[in-house]
Amino acid sequence: MVANAWDAGATQVKILIPEDYHKKLIASDNGSGLSKDQFEQRSMKLDYNRLKHQGKNVLFCQG
């Protein structure tokens, strides 16, 4: 999650880890975000290779 925020140009990342086991872990950042297609391609993939799919340099969208 933090690597994704970094790749999106985030300068702030917040991670809320709940005390109760059955509550949701929440991560938020101020990065440029993902489109629906990008989210579906990248989320929940432990082996997503940003360099392979996006290249060495990342362009941040202002939005």
Score class of each variant (00 low, 15 high):
residue 35 S to I: 03
residue 1 M to Y: 01
residue 38 Q to E: 15
residue 57 N to I: 11
residue 5 A to P: 07
residue 3 A to H: 14
residue 19 E to M: 11
residue 23 K to R: 07
residue 15 I to S: 01
residue 39 F to I: 02
residue 29 D to N: 14
residue 5 A to E: 08
residue 56 K to L: 13
residue 54 Q to M: 09
residue 10 A to L: 06
residue 23 K to G: 04
residue 26 I to D: 03
residue 3 A to L: 15
residue 27 A to C: 10
residue 13 V to F: 11
residue 41 Q to Y: 02
residue 43 S to K: 12
residue 6 W to Q: 13
residue 32 S to F: 03
residue 13 V to I: 15
residue 13 V to A: 12
residue 51 L to G: 13
residue 41 Q to C: 01
residue 55 G to T: 00
residue 14 K to G: 00
residue 42 R to H: 08
residue 27 A to K: 02
residue 57 N to Q: 09
residue 52 K to N: 01
residue 5 A to T: 07
residue 18 P to H: 08
residue 15 I to V: 09
residue 21 Y to G: 01
residue 40 E to G: 01
residue 42 R to W: 06
residue 7 D to L: 05
residue 49 N to Q: 14
residue 30 N to C: 03
residue 17 I to T: 07
residue 51 L to K: 15
residue 47 D to A: 11
residue 14 K to S: 02
residue 50 R to C: 06
residue 60 F to Q: 08
residue 56 K to A: 12
residue 50 R to I: 08
residue 30 N to E: 05
residue 22 H to T: 13
residue 33 G to Y: 03
residue 28 S to P: 00
residue 37 D to L: 06
residue 33 G to R: 04
residue 24 K to C: 10
residue 56 K to P: 04
residue 25 L to N: 10
residue 6 W to N: 12
residue 49 N to P: 10
residue 5 A to S: 15
residue 5 A to V: 08
residue 22 H to P: 02
residue 41 Q to P: 01
residue 55 G to M: 01
residue 6 W to Y: 14
residue 49 N to W: 10
residue 48 Y to D: 05
residue 13 V to R: 06
residue 10 A to S: 09
residue 27 A to P: 00
residue 58 V to T: 07
residue 18 P to R: 07
residue 25 L to R: 11
residue 4 N to K: 15
residue 36 K to L: 15
residue 42 R to T: 10
residue 12 Q to T: 14
residue 48 Y to Q: 06
residue 60 F to P: 00
residue 23 K to V: 02
residue 35 S to Q: 06
residue 38 Q to W: 05
residue 7 D to C: 02
residue 63 G to M: 05
residue 31 G to Q: 04
residue 23 K to A: 14
residue 46 L to G: 14
residue 19 E to R: 11
residue 2 V to E: 13
residue 62 Q to P: 02
residue 22 H to V: 11
residue 9 G to R: 04
residue 62 Q to H: 08
residue 32 S to L: 02
residue 27 A to F: 07
residue 50 R to A: 09
residue 18 P to F: 07
residue 32 S to T: 06
residue 51 L to M: 15
residue 8 A to N: 09
residue 44 M to T: 09
residue 36 K to W: 12
residue 48 Y to R: 05
residue 28 S to H: 00
residue 56 K to R: 15
residue 28 S to M: 09
residue 1 M to T: 05
residue 16 L to P: 00
residue 19 E to G: 11
residue 37 D to A: 12
residue 34 L to V: 00
